[in-house]
Design a protein around this nucleic acid. Structure first.
Lengths: 191, 191
DNA sequence: TGTACATCAGTGAACGCGCGTTCACTGATGTAC
DNA sequence: TGTACATCAGTGAACGCGCGTTCACTGATGTAC
């Protein structure tokens, strides 16, 4: 064969990774198949050798984004002093760095309303990805019992995603930082 | 003339109102010019008698959405007992009713990430609409000084918009209500 | 060992479609004379 | 008072364009004999 045995699988993974960044940066409609394939160094014609439809790519890209964001935040938690993991997550999530780089950030802040509008079949698969993100991060949340941690997850990620989104609408970095700091203060003093 | 003197202005306002609902329900790319005109009982050909471009309609629709949401929440505040205005706003915003009806709800929860991605010229105009929303609602927020109320506005609307967005991704009403209740609890106990 | 054929990831032209946009036209009313 | 023309909100066909998708083809490698 012309290529290594796992060449095709690697190409597919690269397409998903590139698509994941582009979807977060430009939205699900903004990330065109041809642009994604160009990102991966390929031509658009080969796309359907790897995926059955663009929707399939979108679902996998969103899954990849949740996975990457989950890895990012668990790494942050691992590097934090014992007992401060969730505070480290809040500080990293609510940073100007995250705010100004949607492409490598949390898909909730980048895409939530669009994902909520997707059709039933897709919505189910995307919800499964969100559930995976939650089950990965929930143990790092404050609270004694699992139910407390679950509530903390929802409250903390609601505030963080909303704050990043509002901050991203603001033209001045100083204004963005003000919104992020306000959300940080609310969360750090409330749990 | 064939029509009343203010007929054209009224038609334009109807187009903007209908577009505002459709944009909140389906996103800026989902709300096609022809669909918006059909909503208003017109054909798409007449669109450019009223608007210079689709972007112009989007900006005005988002402005209309902020105005409608501002009126809704100030009405809620007016009907609340003295000193509980912001709590009434939190309860109304974080209701299943609002969660399940994006078309008539807050544009932050329906559109924030898409709006953040719009090009510089549009972004400036959309920021101005957000600033109007903020200046209308900030006086109703908890806190003594204006700076406190501003921080409360950012923190509360971040949490509320994020919670509605996450809830809208969930398939079961009970799960949506759990997220909304969690965000309500956080806000009502933190200010 | 050498030739003919099979495989298959990737190419690039082409498809139909819906989009934003344009434009010649309609037809009811107002105005000029 | 009656006729010719101007106005202008709205119509509907058409435009170019980019999209998702399809498909005949390429060409390097592996296999059959």
């Amino acid at each position: 064969m012309r290529y290594q045995p796992d060449h095709k699988a690697e190409t597919r993974r690269k397409i998903v990774k590139d698509a994941s960044r582009r979807v977060r940066a430009e939205g699900t409609t903004g990330a065109a198949v041809s642009a994604v394939m160009r990102d991966a160094g390929l031509t658009h014609g080969g796309f359907y050798k790897h995926f059955g439809s663009k929707d399939e790519l979108i679902v996998e890209s969103v899954g990849e984004a949740f996975t990457e964001a989950g890895e990012w935040l668990t790494r942050i938690a691992r590097q934090a002093k014992p007992g401060t993991a969730w505070k480290a997550i809040v500080k990293a999530y609510l940073s100007l760095e995250h705010c100004d780089h949607a492409a490598s950030g949390c898909p909730l802040a980048a895409l939530a309303p669009e994902l909520a509008r997707s059709d039933r079949a897709m919505k189910g698969r995307i919800f499964a990805e969100l559930a995976g993100y939650k089950s990965r991060l929930q143990p790092l949340m404050p609270g004694r019992r699992a139910a407390d941690k679950e509530r903390a997850f929802f409250a903390i990620f609601s505030t963080m995603a909303g704050a990043i989104e509002i901050a991203r609408m603001l033209p001045e970095p100083a204004m963005r930082e003000k919104v992020l700091a306000t959300a940080r203060d609310l969360l750090l003093r409330s749990f």
